[in-house]
């Protein structure tokens, strides 16, 4: 069986990463999860320099991106991803605490594939993660690498 492509979570907070992982696992998600704690790191991973260079690791199949990051923030990363010569075909879903309509609008405008407001309760979070994985890994077909 072919090795499964991982899910990339871009998240600077260890606790939040832990909570998200927990919720995903609770929801039955069993693919590998990789993490970048900075947007710059994620950019390198998604758009290797020079392009087409085989990176040592596999391309993720989906990115969960936190907006509030040190240095380059989530919105700027989206912008970078759009502006490279060959934009990656990997969908990016925003994971944020902000319900600000402007943030929502900006993310979708910059090509986000989804926007998920983190709820406070773990139960709710788990249920959202269940729906998210069902959607991306059952309902729709993701592009090949």
């Amino acid at each position: 069986m072919k090795e499964e492509r991982p899910l990339l979570i871009v998240e600077d907070s260890d606790e939040d990463f832990e909570v998200t992982c927990w919720a995903l696992r609770q929801a039955g998600f069993d693919r590998p999860i990789v993490r970048c704690s900075r947007a710059e790191e994620a950019l390198l991973r998604l758009c290797p320099v020079p392009p087409n260079q085989e990176s040592g690791s596999m391309m993720p199949c989906l990115v969960l991106l936190d907006l509030n990051l040190p240095g380059m923030n989530g919105l700027q990363l989206l912008e970078e991803l759009r502006s490279v010569e060959q934009p990656p075909t990997i969908p990016v879903v925003i994971l944020s605490t902000s319900k600000n309509p402007r943030d929502l609008a900006a993310c979708y405008r910059l090509g986000a594939a989804g926007y998920l407001c983190k709820p406070l309760s773990l139960e709710l979070y788990t249920s959202k993660m269940l729906k998210l994985t069902q959607y991306w890994f059952d309902a729709v077909t993701l592009p090949e690498e």
Binding site: E15, V19, S121
Partner: peptide, 9 residues
């Protein structure tokens, strides 16, 4: 909100 969420979680 972020640390608060952590506390809660």
């Amino acid at each position: 909100k972020e640390p608060l969420r952590g506390i809660h979680n």
